[in-house]
Nucleic acid binder design. Structure first.
Length: 955
RNA sequence: GCCGAAGUGGCGGAAUUGGUAGACGCGCUGGAUUCAAAAUCCAGUUCUCGCAAGGGAGUGUGGGUUCGAUUCCCACCUUCGGUACCA
């Protein structure tokens, strides 16, 4: 008996596709373009895991479907190759990131090839190659050379701004910027180069300013938030503090309004759009200046509730606020310093998330409420963040929960200013009610009061109306090696200059030392010869973040080898934008914000023809893994690090422990309540993480120190329980499962169909191979539909019967509809149903077999190709045309109706398809099976939904 | 904390616009085939009461709207994603 041999057949067709360049695509004006894009993979050292292909399979099915429908489909793949993990790996192992990245890419490529995707590999890009990052750097130079003009509502060259300054100063400049002062043309001309450069920085779309980083003294490096767990470094558990550094920023906030408005023109899920709307966080309010008693400086606050200003009984500055040092009184100095020390150790996320206990300290200084001249104390507190708004708030304890908690804790006066008694059920933040205790606005309704205060503030020049965004400008500097160098040099006066295109790319210099300098500068700062240029200039030593390369890669795929331009105009005018983008929801804000921002900027420069990059977007769910971790006691005893088994730790509470991830292969019974390390597992863990070599592992049976078990009483062996949770499959969680084994055993087509069969694309689900046999059986059954036991084709040229045509067209209809709505799991079910039904016929008719093969081609491209060839075709099935659905094959004369009594199904009956409502009702009521339910009761109502159901209401 | 999503049999899931809850598949049970096993095929399989016929309950929890709710509304619980230097 000849069975379907997946490894041989799949191998054969992959070779054929490569030899024949089946998926190569060129611009073709005679066809409609369709661009199907996958989110850019980062080539992780753990290889491709079973979660990655989920989206790729879906997009591949759709791309293949669109080709069968006659579209010219662009479906490329490449690598987001710069990033922290490769650098981290280099620090640990000494292997250069370029080398490990290239090896990882090779592995990815091999794995991707095995999945039978229809990528045009001639278009592959890698962000870490100079030919690519030349253009990332070039786009940065354009951002540096432009500012956002609010009159034109777009990016405008900075040269135009300079000539305006020359002619009339900045009084008439209407720009999205952060100017620190007003000046005339004469003043501008009198400024020296340094002063002028600093002023321009307030306008540029790429600019420098001070920002805060997570500095870990013990590791001597800046940490990503991801590398910090429970306030200490994930690696080693060392303290982390905030440190100020001058860094590059991108003025993404200039585009906030447009990014918000243009959401209306793109086909993304409402939930995703909502996330972006909330991230942008547009609010309308007022900026108001408060005088400080005995100081000349003023504190600027931004408030969305200017109406509540009479209830502002104190002010709060962010601990990092520049005024804190100067206004703190001698009496309070010690307390303030101690508090600042505390805040340094707190992560931004902790500071925002903290609600149970508020903390803060009085500075000793007072401010004057500009409207009622009340003297109010100035406090500092961690819940005010320097990067939000102005880094200072007027606190209104009567109308804000945080302020309320704060005033309760520290005994600060609360003045009720809004009477909401006319609005029962209104929340604290609803802008309704009548003003009380509020000077000239007392008695006004809230909206009216907001308007009145804004007007007064403007009339008396105490501030101005303002639109604010919660979104902040993007920090674009990394003190790291493995990223794009900035195309920036500094002169003697520390003025930044961009390099002209002729000097791009600025290549990343070879190095084998990837640790930052003692001062926290990037590793590049160590390379004096590279930093210092012959002309006396010095290079910028920070590098760009990984989002740089991924913010425009979809454009490069249109023209990947162009050395004259980031993309040729005629190519971008043909491919325009991405029609379907599939990727994880974890990119909902970060990547999708940056890419939209860059695209709009390029649109302003007339370099791309559309205002939005991604027309339709689907978030694939995540295939999750099990994260296993051991619990490290945050308080070492006698300086010894101590791990405590999860069952012992449970008694003490989570807060006392840091979770240190463990490779799942070390863990016995991983994923269950009983997951644990045995003695060998502990040994593997300390061999792998040598920093914990001397740590103590405490469990119920005793302690393990340096791999030696010290039992308590008569215990024989230790069971060190680990903490397990469902979560992301990620190299950093050491829980990656590769697809290779599954493919070897079941074949690519089976793997592809199984991943789709798992459930809806958008849902997250833990990886599990239970059920893959069902798909495997389906493929075999499908094969047997075409061949007898000796492997002879059993397809005949007879005309198909009515039943066969009905089965086929039912399947065409359902599969087509479901592909269109990206419901791939149900497509697989439809195929199974079709094959089960067709098995009733001894031989298959050619017309049915061929159509079914084409339907199957996007899902099981190898199998379909083999069937197609055996059916006698010479060209690839992927160049065929999708079969056309013909409704006449589905016409039925009778329809089966469920009949319910009071909403509960009690009977079933068939009625003619063309029967009238009245006929159906009369016949239904006459049925014996119904009579017994309505006997002796009153029929109050009969609902007949034609072709659907009948409901009889009795009482 | 805040923003977003999900929750349906033993398991993955289906039900597209408010209209037969559990399609399809896994697993399980029984049977056929076989010396035996694998493979294959056939039948059954939400829970519960019942010999059966036939009832009752049922889509995370509690309420509501409706002739009718997995689907709409309100409140809550749990899990997952994001939270600005993982990508």
């Amino acid at each position: 008996m000849q069975e379907y041999n997946h490894s041989e057949i799949e191998q054969k067709w992959r070779q054929y596709w490569e030899d024949h360049q089946t998926y190569r695509v060129e611009e073709d004006e005679s066809k409609t373009k369709y661009y199907v894009l996958d989110m850019f993979p980062y080539p992780s050292g753990a290889g491709l895991h079973v979660g990655h292909p989920l989206g790729y399979i879906a997009s591949d099915i759709y791309a293949r479907y669109k080709r069968l429908k006659g579209f010219n489909v662009l479906h490329p793949m490449g690598y987001d190759a710069f990033g922290l993990p490769a650098e981290q790996y280099a620090i640990e192992t000494g292997i250069h990131p370029a080398k490990s990245t290239s090896q990882n890419i090779d592995r990815y490529r091999k794995q991707l090839s095995q999945l039978g995707f229809s990528f045009d590999w001639s278009r592959e890009v890698r962000t870490c190659e100079p030919g690519y990052y030349k253009w990332t750097q070039w786009i940065f130079t354009q951002l540096f050379d432009h500012y956002y003009d609010l009159s034109d509502n777009k990016a405008v060259p900075i040269s135009k701004l300079i000539s305006t300054f020359d002619q009339s100063g900045n009084a008439d400049v209407h720009a999205f910027a952060t100017p620190s002062r007003d000046f005339t043309a004469a003043e501008w001309q009198s400024f020296d180069a340094k002063q002028q450069a600093e002023i321009l920085m307030d306008y540029r779309l790429a600019y420098r300013r001070i920002g805060y980083v997570n500095w870990c003294e013990a590791l001597g490096t800046v940490l990503a938030n991801d590398q910090i767990k429970d306030g200490v470094s994930e690696r080693g558990g060392h303290p982390v503090e905030k440190r100020a550094m001058t860094q590059w920023y991108l003025r993404i906030t200039a585009y906030a309004e447009r990014m918000l408005n243009d959401l209306a023109q793109i086909d993304w899920s409402e939930s995703l759009k909502t996330m972006q709307v909330n991230w942008i966080g547009r609010s309308e309010g007022a900026a108001v200046f408060f005088d400080i008693v005995d100081h000349s400086a003023q504190i600027e606050v931004y408030t969305t509730r200017p109406d509540t200003i009479f209830g502002a009984t104190f002010m709060v500055l962010a601990p990092e606020h520049p005024y804190v040092q100067q206004i703190t009184t001698d009496d309070q100095r010690e307390e303030v310093d101690a508090y600042l020390e505390y805040v340094k150790s707190r992560s931004e996320r902790d500071r925002q998330a903290e609600v149970k206990t508020v903390t803060g300290t009085f500075t000793g200084a007072y401010a004057i409420n500009p409207l009622n001249k009340a003297k109010v104390p100035i406090w500092i507190a961690e819940y005010v963040l320097m990067d939000y708004g102005t880094g200072a708030i007027m606190a209104v304890p009567s109308d804000d929960e945080r302020d309320q908690k704060f005033s309760e804790k520290f005994g600060i006066e609360i003045i009720d200013v809004v009477d909401k008694s006319d609005y029962p059920g209104a929340g604290l933040h609803d802008k309704v009610g009548k003003m009380i205790n509020s000077g000239f606005i007392t008695g006004m309704q809230v909206p009216e009061a907001i308007e009145a205060v804004c007007q007064k503030v403007e009339d008396e020049q105490l501030g101005s109306r303002q639109v604010n965004f919660k979104m902040r400008d993007a920090n674009f500097s990394r003190q790291r090696y493995w990223g794009e160098p900035f195309p920036i040099v500094y002169d003697d006066a520390d003025i930044a200059h961009v390099l002209p295109i002729a000097e791009l790319p600025v290549e990343l210099p070879p190095s084998d030392d990837f640790t930052p300098t003692a001062a926290g500068e990037s590793p590049l700062a160590r390379m004096k010869d590279w930093v210092a240029l012959p002309n006396g200039m010095k290079r910028e030593t920070d590098t760009m973040p990984a989002v740089a390369g991924s913010s425009w890669y979809y454009l490069r795929y249109m023209d990947p080898h162009n050395d004259e331009s980031f993309v040729a105009t005629e190519k971008v005018n043909y491919w325009k934008d991405v029609d379907l983008y599939i990727g994880g929801a974890e990119h909902a804000v970060s990547h999708l914000m940056y890419a939209r921002f860059w695209h709009k900027f390029l649109y302003d420069l007339q370099l791309v023809p559309t205002a939005e990059p991604f027309k339709k977007l689907i978030n694939q769910g995540m295939i999750q893994g099990v994260i296993e971790s051991v619990l490290l006691d945050k308080d070492p005893i006698d300086g010894k690090q101590r791990f405590v088994c999860a069952k012992l730790a449970a008694a003490r509470g989570d807060a006392d422990f840091a979770r240190i991830p463990v490779k799942i292969e070390f863990v016995n019974d991983y994923g269950s309540d009983e997951s644990h390390l045995d003695l060998a597992g502990i040994q593997k863990f300390i061999d792998w993480r040598s920093t914990y070599q001397d740590a103590i592992f405490e469990c119920i049976e005793g302690e393990v120190i340096n791999g030696v078990f010290h039992p308590r009483e008569n215990a024989v062996s230790p069971t060190f329980y680990t903490h397990s949770e469902v979560g992301k499959m990620s190299k950093s969680k050491y829980n990656v499962i590769n697809p290779d084994d599954v493919i070897n055993r079941y074949g690519t087509d089976c793997f592809r169909m199984y991943e789709m069969f798992l459930g809806p694309l958008e849902n997250s689900k833990p990886w599990d191979t239970n059920g893959i046999d069902g798909v495997s059986k389906f493929i075999k059954k499908c094969w047997r539909l075409f061949f007898d036991l000796e492997g002879r084709l059993t397809v005949s040229d007879e005309n198909p019967s009515k039943d066969e045509l009905r089965i086929l067209h039912q399947t065409i209809k359902k599969v087509e509809e479901d592909i269109e709505r990206h419901s791939f799991n149900t497509c697989i079910s439809h195929f199974m149903v079709a094959v089960n039904q067709l098995r009733a016929f001894k031989t298959q008719k050619r017309a049915i077999a061929e159509a079914l093969t084409i339907l199957l081609a996007p899902f099981a491209p190898h199998l379909a190709e083999e069937l197609w060839q055996r059916l006698g075709h010479l060209a690839s099935v992927h160049q065929a045309s999708f079969p056309t659905f013909e409704a006449e094959h589905l016409v039925v004369s009778e329809i089966s109706y469920p009949i319910s009594i009071n909403g509960k199904k009690r009977a079933e009956a068939s009625f003619a398809a063309n029967a009238s409502k009245e006929d159906v009702e009369r016949e239904a009521l006459a049925l014996d099976s119904i009579q017994k339910w309505i006997d002796g009761k009153t029929v109050r109502k009969v609902i007949v939904v034609p072709k659907r159901m009948i409901n009889i209401v009795v009482g």
